[in-house]
């Protein structure tokens, strides 16, 4: 009895050690960023001026237009990517499950493929495609979202697949069809509500990925938040790091809020 007790104590201790170390590992850089952005390099001591600058939206917009533009672009990109990803994946995956089960492997393979392609290679491949995108749709940064949809495909696929596995889509949609529902209604009123958690977590991962994306945007010379931060860093290091920290915290809050909504819906 007592050996089991100490065993359990040991395991709990190990668990807390691991959690503690991980937290330290993640928090030290964040603390470093905070420390750096509050340092007054000219007069010595502490200063909050970078943070007050950041909070002062009209001033930021005026003095650092690139930053405001990058922020707006990243928001738009996150939204655009999530919407396109959901419109593409949810009906496709549902349809494959219902009508074309033979294609499951193929679709899975295609969706997971982007994991194996480095971003830089993707850009090389996408360059001629984007020549056409620019020609047809214009130069808008938001079209970068099309590339991002490909980027988030593997993660979104995994979440949605788990969601679809958890419900009997076939029987549910057949029941709804027999009661007189059109396919659109089946999707909207039956499949989607039951995929809520999966859709949220897919969106969630996509937002996180888009908010942190730098490589593709930079190589295509589009200005998203990360690119703007990078450029700002060349002229004003401290403000750039403040923006970086703020965007991290922002992303964290967004994701936390989304997961909270998802959990609340379930209970």
């Amino acid at each position: 009895m007592s050996t089991r007790h100490t065993e359990r104590r040991k395991r709990a201790a190990l668990r807390w050690t691991v959690i503690g170390l991980t937290l330290v590992f993640f928090l030290i850089p964040l603390y470093g960023m905070l420390e750096f952005t509050t340092r007054d390099l000219i007069n010595g001591g502490r200063t909050g001026k970078f943070w007050t600058t950041l909070v002062d939206v009209p001033q930021v917009t005026e003095r650092y237009p690139a930053l405001a533009e990058g922020f707006a672009s990243s928001m738009a990109l996150a939204l655009f990517t999530v919407v396109v990803m959901l419109l593409l994946l949810v009906p496709t995956m549902t349809w494959v499950r219902l009508r074309l089960p033979g294609l499951t492997r193929t679709v899975e393979f295609i969706c997971l493929l982007p994991l194996t392609v480095p971003a830089i290679v993707l850009v090389v491949g996408l360059t001629p495609v984007y020549a056409w995108v620019t020609y047809l749709l214009g130069e808008g940064t938001v079209w970068l979202g099309l590339a991002y949809v490909i980027l988030v495909l593997p993660y979104a696929y995994r979440s949605l697949d788990a969601g679809l596995r958890a419900i009997d889509v076939k029987t549910l949609s057949e029941a709804a069809r027999s009661l007189g529902a059109s396919w659109l209604r089946v999707m909207w009123q039956i499949v989607l509500p039951n995929l809520r958690t999966a859709v949220l977590s897919a969106s969630f991962l996509s937002v996180a990925l888009v908010l942190g994306e730098f490589t593709i945007a930079n190589l295509f010379s589009r200005k998203n938040l990360q690119v703007a931060m990078f450029e700002l860093g060349k002229s004003d290091g401290q403000l750039s790091v403040a923006v970086g920290l703020a965007s991290l915290v922002f992303a964290f809050v967004v994701l936390f809020a989304m997961s909270f909504v998802g959990r609340k819906e379930k209970s």
Partner: peptide, 20 residues
């Protein structure tokens, strides 16, 4: 005629109530 226009009431072997 498609299912949705046939006016058939169905009860399935598998449980088919809409969970939400």
């Amino acid at each position: 005629v498609p299912t949705s226009k046939r006016d058939m009431g169905m009860v399935f072997q598998a449980y088919s109530l809409f969970p939400h």
